[in-house]
């Protein structure tokens, strides 16, 4: 078990090395573009460009450039972005990360619970009006653009009905720290959580229903029913338990990508300065150090959640365990 975990960690490091090298090559070694000039920003003085060129080692061979970049990103953590008036990159990412994590983790709880509830209820009431209504709702959730839904939620909760008893508790847009103001943190995030989760509840509910309906055709469900178990037990302990395996795979992928910055639209709509927004702004101004930092951050979470999913597999599916 321990060797498996160590092996997995080594793999993660290797994958992250690959990603960092690739991103570095794309942004810093593209022929015909001078990275020093880009880092210096528009209208930079010639001396600044020269200083950056020397500082980042752009006058030295590529592996050295890569080494310097990684050292400044991970070891001395003083990689600065000149586009952004000399702000250091790492503290910005570290400040944005808790916001994105809060948003995505809360939404993840909602969508896992909601997705399982929708999927199980629809599968139990298959082909009835309840099933059809749930699937219709899920389809609406999937097809609603998140920025539109978010703005609608804002319109309702921040302006139209803000003065009624329904939404008077909703604070203004923006993020409140969990550590200094937990209740405020919760209140500001409830609506963003729900907005982000709506799409995923739809997807997960529909996929889970399909998996459950398929599971009910399986012989082992017939065996379970022939054993005289209650319908609830057949559903939860047999059908749902087996259907959770693809569910976990999907969750790992979606969660990693969202924490990595894919929740951009939700962040923008609700004024949350998370990693998605940071990446977006860095891309707009071609802020190379910032892009490098956010991409490394995103890949870190994708790789970590994938590793966690693999470990979860070992727990929930005995077939992947080595004898």
């Amino acid at each position: 078990m321990l060797t498996a975990i160590i092996q997995r960690l080594a793999q993660m490091v290797f994958v992250m090395f690959g990603i960092s090298a690739l991103v570095f090559l794309i942004f810093f070694a593209t022929p015909g573009a001078d990275p020093a000039a880009r880092i210096a920003g528009r209208n930079a003085a010639q001396e600044t460009v020269e200083a950056i060129r020397h500082d980042f080692g752009f006058d030295r061979p590529l592996p050295v450039q890569y080494g310097i970049m990684m050292k400044r990103l991970f070891i001395s953590r003083d990689l600065t972005s000149f586009v952004n008036r000399g702000l250091q990159v790492v503290p910005q990412v570290l400040a944005a990360a808790p916001i994105t994590l809060s948003l995505v983790c809360g939404a993840a709880v909602l969508w896992v619970v909601g997705g399982i509830a929708v999927g199980v209820l629809a599968a139990l009431t298959r082909d009835t009006i309840i099933d059809k209504a749930l699937m219709m709702l899920a389809l609406i959730g999937v097809s609603m653009p998140v920025f539109w839904f978010g703005e609608m939620m804002n319109l309702v909760s921040q302006s139209r009905f803000h003065d009624t008893w329904l939404f008077s508790w909703v604070p203004g847009l923006g993020y409140k720290s969990l550590w200094t103001d937990p209740w405020g943190w919760f209140k500001t995030l409830v609506i963003p959580w729900f907005t982000l989760a709506a799409l995923y509840i739809g997807i997960y509910g529909r996929v889970l229903r399909a998996n459950l309906v398929e599971a009910y055709q399986e012989d082992f469900i017939r065996t379970a029913r022939a054993k005289g178990l209650s319908p609830a037990r057949v559903m939860v302990r047999h059908a749902l338990r087996v259907s959770l395996i693809p569910f976990v795979t999907m969750f790992g992928l979606d969660f990693g990508v969202l924490v990595g910055g894919a929740a951009l639209l939700t962040e923008v709509v609700f004024g949350l300065n998370g990693v998605g927004r940071l990446t977006y702004q860095a891309l707009l101004s071609l802020d190379l150090p910032m892009i490098l930092a956010t991409v490394m951050y995103a890949s870190f979470f994708v790789v970590v959640t994938n590793a966690l999913v693999d470990m979860l597999y070992v727990l929930i599916d005995p077939r992947v365990r080595k004898s």
């Binding site: 017939r222 005289g228 087996v242 599916d317």
Partner: peptide
């Protein structure tokens, strides 16, 4: 009655047991 008084032996033992 199912499982207690009447037991079922399924056709395909490969798929008739819950794999997990």
């Amino acid at each position: 009655i199912r499982g207690k008084d009447i037991g079922l032996i399924s056709q395909d033992p490969m798929t008739a047991l819950t794999p997990v």
